[in-house]
Design a protein around this nucleic acid. Structure first.
Lengths: 136, 136
DNA sequence: CCGAATCCATAGGGATACTG
DNA sequence: CAGTATCCCTATGGATTCGG
């Protein structure tokens, strides 16, 4: 009775199809937030060597220290990123993708690839829509 | 000098790799918002026949009328969804994916598929992280 | 039936200053 | 160096009411 459409489970009812929530929404919301994808991409660039906090920050010039900390904490909590703290002075902290984090990369790549191919068209569409006051 | 990693352009500098913003972030933020993916999935279920406003609303029981309207408007503006208004009484409005909207589905599927396979692990990881007060 | 308008509560996220 | 803590502004989104 339960089928899958484009990765989502649903069921057909008399009133039409209804999507069955499969709890992935919290995950997608995380990935869609302002910094997660950027951080995942940075960490994906050096699969074998962890990166220091400051190195990540360097790779994403616009990010604030606070949001980098917060987002990394969330990714660690989700099991996508591993954090290594070295008790030295000055302190050193390194981050790397977990195994699960690495399994996400192909899917991520598929998505960002589509975006790279289509964002100009999207920008144009937005422009046209705004110019026509929405009565397209 | 500019390379691509997992769908994102970057360049190597003396100070390490730096991600080049390629403007897809607005798009990703849209897809990560609370309802877009659900709506896209619903529309993907009937590729040949458009859906009425109320049918979509029916398929996503928790969504408010306001957020359905707002999200559909955004998708229309992005060129991912087509809106057909029938000037009748009572009025009827139908929505369907555009061609570009349909090209997004494989990427979407890759992503939601990964999520479906991994969200339990993510939930467990979050639980463990919270239980340990973050000193994992 | 579809959606615009309004009100309001909460979450996201920037700037800055402070600490081991 | 790698965070915390605080303040504050804005965006998101729910509930409700009104209109064509």
């Amino acid at each position: 009775m339960e089928k899958i459409i484009h990765g989502r489970p649903y069921k057909n009812t008399a009133k039409g199809p209804i999507l069955v929530p499969c709890a992935p929404h919290g995950v997608l919301a995380r990935l869609g937030d302002k910094w997660t994808i950027l951080i995942m991409s940075i960490l994906a660039m050096t699969p074998t060597t962890p990166l220091r906090f400051s190195e990540i920050k360097n790779g994403i010039p616009e990010i604030s220290q606070r949001m980098l900390t917060v987002t990394l904490r969330n990714l660690q909590r989700d099991g996508l990123v591993l954090r290594h703290y070295f008790c030295e002075v000055p302190p050193r902290v390194e981050y790397e993708l977990t195994l699960m984090g690495k399994t996400m990369l192909p899917a991520l790549e598929g998505f960002t690839g589509w975006i790279r191919e289509n964002w100009q068209a999207i920008e144009r569409s937005r422009q046209a829509f705004d110019d026509s006051n929405g009565d397209l």
